[in-house]
Simulated scan of single mutants.
Amino acid sequence: MSGQHPRDGIREACESFLDAYGSRDLDRLRGLMSHREDLVVLGTHRDLRFTGWTAFEAALADQFAAMGRMAVRTSGFEASLLAGGRAACAALTVDCDGTVSGNPVRAEGLRITLTLEVRDGTWRIVQLHWSVPQDGSLLRPEECDAPGGGEDPDDIADAFAAYEELARRVTESVNRRRFDFSRDIAPLVAGDFVEIVNGVPYGPDAVRQTFAPLVEAVGGGAAFSWTVALESGRVLTDGTVLLITTARVVLSGRGRPRVDDRYRITNVLRRSPTGQWVFVHQHRSELAESAADVDPADNTGPERAASWARRTGW
Score class of each variant (00 low, 15 high):
212 A>I: 13
49 R>P: 04
258 R>T: 12
58 A>D: 10
263 Y>M: 02
52 G>F: 14
12 E>M: 14
175 N>Q: 12
164 E>I: 05
70 M>W: 13
173 S>A: 15
279 F>Q: 00
290 S>L: 02
308 W>G: 00
164 E>M: 03
259 V>D: 03
267 N>R: 10
62 D>C: 03
31 G>R: 07
281 H>N: 01
91 A>H: 11
265 I>F: 15
4 Q>H: 11
49 R>V: 05
84 G>H: 13
34 S>H: 14
142 E>K: 06
151 E>H: 09
233 G>N: 00
247 A>Y: 07
242 L>V: 06
156 I>T: 12
104 P>D: 12
93 T>R: 15
305 A>K: 01
258 R>Y: 13
66 A>H: 12
87 A>C: 15
106 R>M: 02
139 L>E: 07
9 G>E: 03
84 G>S: 08
83 A>D: 09
289 E>K: 07
268 V>I: 13
214 L>Q: 08
304 R>V: 02
121 G>C: 08
236 L>I: 05
54 T>D: 15
298 D>P: 03
138 L>Q: 03
214 L>R: 04
208 R>T: 00
70 M>P: 06
54 T>F: 14
294 V>K: 09
256 R>N: 09
55 A>V: 11
227 T>Y: 11
91 A>W: 12
160 F>V: 01
298 D>A: 13
59 A>N: 03
296 P>Y: 08
11 R>F: 15
77 F>K: 02
205 D>T: 03
125 I>A: 01
32 L>R: 02
134 Q>S: 09
212 A>Q: 12
5 H>F: 13
1 M>K: 04
175 N>S: 00
69 R>W: 11
36 R>D: 15
95 D>L: 06
152 D>V: 04
185 I>W: 05
66 A>C: 08
18 L>E: 06
258 R>C: 14
163 Y>G: 00
216 E>Q: 11
120 D>R: 04
190 A>H: 09
76 G>A: 15
52 G>Q: 04
105 V>Y: 09
262 R>S: 05
220 G>F: 08
2 S>Y: 11
210 T>A: 15
306 A>Q: 06
26 L>M: 15
99 T>D: 02
59 A>Y: 07
101 S>V: 06
78 E>Y: 11
21 Y>C: 05
289 E>V: 06
72 V>M: 07
164 E>V: 10
233 G>R: 01
2 S>P: 09
61 A>F: 08
190 A>D: 11
186 A>Q: 10
11 R>E: 14
18 L>D: 05
261 D>T: 00
9 G>Q: 02
284 R>F: 13
55 A>N: 15
283 H>F: 12
16 S>D: 11
80 S>V: 08
228 V>T: 10
57 E>Q: 04
22 G>M: 08
254 R>Q: 09
147 P>V: 04
84 G>M: 11
287 L>D: 02
274 T>E: 14
203 G>D: 08
91 A>S: 10
44 T>E: 10
209 Q>E: 15
253 G>F: 14
89 C>N: 04
187 P>M: 09
121 G>S: 09
27 D>H: 09
223 A>Q: 08
58 A>T: 06
169 R>A: 02
102 G>V: 01
220 G>E: 12
77 F>M: 00
193 F>T: 00
177 R>K: 05
209 Q>A: 15
193 F>S: 01
